Amino acid sequence: MAGVNRISDKLKVVSSSSRRKRKRSPFFLPEEILFSILLKLPVEVLCNVMRYVCREWYNVINDPCFIDAHLQKSTNCLLIQSYRFPNFFHFVEIHDSDIQTRMVRYEFPMSAYSSCDGLILFRCNEEGIFYVANPTTMQLVKLPPLSSKWCFIRAPLLTYFRSTGRCKVVLILRDENNHNVCLILTVGADSAWRQIDTKHFPDFASHSFSCKSFSTGGYIYLTCDYASHLFALDAEAEIFHRFPKPDCTIGGKYMVWKSFLGLVAHHAAFVWELWALTDLNTGKWTKLLYIDLRGKRCKIEQKFDVPYGESSVQGYLSRKNLSLDRCLVPIASLKNGEVLIFRGTLPFKTYIVFNLKTRKVSSFVICRGEEHASNFYVCHINNLVLLNAS
């Protein structure tokens, strides 16, 4: 309730001043009640309807205290962009009894690279320029251009600090000597990119980073499928750390699980292990649970789409000498770690949703055609966060 109290004190000053100048608005409500009611509404309703009702409601919805309170109570969804149709985004929301998908068309047809607290890092391929946008408020901030001496962009990522409202963007590039360098920029504060010192990690310069990187808790994680460790950037202090990988039997896929960096590793047929980097001081990984889907195999097979030209899923797998569980790639965790989403590898277009709490298996299909192979997908929170573009 701290956020409610802060905004309540602020609104009392505004409302008392307003009453001296004009009659009370027909939509007047006590500040605490107005705050609580608006806090329960979806962000799309707040952004497109409620903030236009009157000046008082507009001020409440755009107040940083309200934005932060609404962000903290929001649940994440899965955002999917097809690189063949960059104007179109699919938002997948998981509810108790169903899966809701909606498609939204935006006017900025750029490739998405990263999302944090609802802000998305885009790159215009024609210009080679990065942008940070909030697709809910349609706010778009253009970032400074990069020097021509940098090439081969890897692991572009952004992070947002709720305490300060600042947003930082991190890029891993190659210099003229083909060495890795790390550039960082504070949106709205820096007029040019700054280079972070990585000399205390000599192997950073030659490390083969994955294109997939992650941001959570103010840290940016740079991963590599074949290395025994990963790098983590404390984005606020702008200092790199190095952590070992967990002791997994077989490689896995990284993702953000709750507020931790997680790793879902294949353990056996239709069994995965969920690990989390739970202690940043020691680099300790904790094995949290086994994800056992052996009893769900038939149901998963029924939910898979039959590849074009094939008579059945099992017939295709037998002909290709594949196992169904090897066609399941874990990609995201939603609802505060309650739901795990798998993507079917080509030619399958199915996404499998597994609820770790209820053990319910469901599915959805977004894309038709070969564009499924080049989808960008990331956990996303629809919110009202305003970018500081000054």
Rank of each mutant, 00 (worst) to 15 (best):
T186P: 03
T186C: 10
G188D: 05
A189I: 13
D190W: 04
A192G: 01
W193M: 05
Q195F: 04
I196F: 07
D197R: 02
K199N: 09
K199G: 01
K199S: 10
K199T: 07
K199F: 05
H200T: 07
H200C: 07
F201H: 12
P202V: 06
D203L: 08
F204Q: 02
F204A: 01
S206K: 11
S206V: 07
S206W: 04
H207S: 14
S208R: 13
S208W: 14
K212M: 10
S213G: 09
F214I: 03
S215R: 06
T216C: 09
G218Q: 04
Y219C: 15
I220K: 04
I220D: 02
I220W: 00
I220L: 11
I220N: 09
Y221L: 11
L222I: 05
L222K: 01
T223E: 08
T223W: 06
Y226F: 11
A227N: 00
S228A: 11
L230K: 00
F231K: 03
F231T: 01
A232W: 01
A232I: 09
L233W: 07
L233V: 03
D234L: 09
A235W: 06
A235G: 04
E236A: 13
E236D: 14
A237S: 14
E238M: 01
E238I: 04
E238V: 01
E238H: 06
I239Q: 11
H241N: 13
H241D: 06
R242Q: 11
R242G: 00
R242E: 10
P244G: 05
K245P: 07
P246C: 14
D247P: 03
C248F: 08
C248W: 06
C248I: 15
T249I: 15
I250R: 14
I250W: 10
G251I: 15
G251W: 13
G252A: 12
G252Y: 11
G252I: 15
K253D: 15
Y254C: 11
Y254L: 12
M255G: 12
M255N: 08
W257T: 09
K258L: 06
K258H: 02
S259V: 05
S259I: 01
S259Q: 00
L261V: 05
L261P: 00
V264R: 08
V264T: 04
H266D: 09
H267E: 15
H267Y: 15
H267P: 00
H267G: 00
H267T: 02
A268D: 14
A268W: 05
A268I: 00
A269E: 12
A269M: 10
A269W: 12
A269R: 14
F270M: 12
F270N: 02
F270S: 03
W272E: 01
W272A: 02
E273C: 01
E273L: 04
E273Q: 07
E273A: 06
L274W: 12
W275G: 03
A276R: 05
A276L: 02
L277D: 00
L277G: 04
T278R: 07
T278C: 06
T278S: 11
L280I: 10
L280F: 12
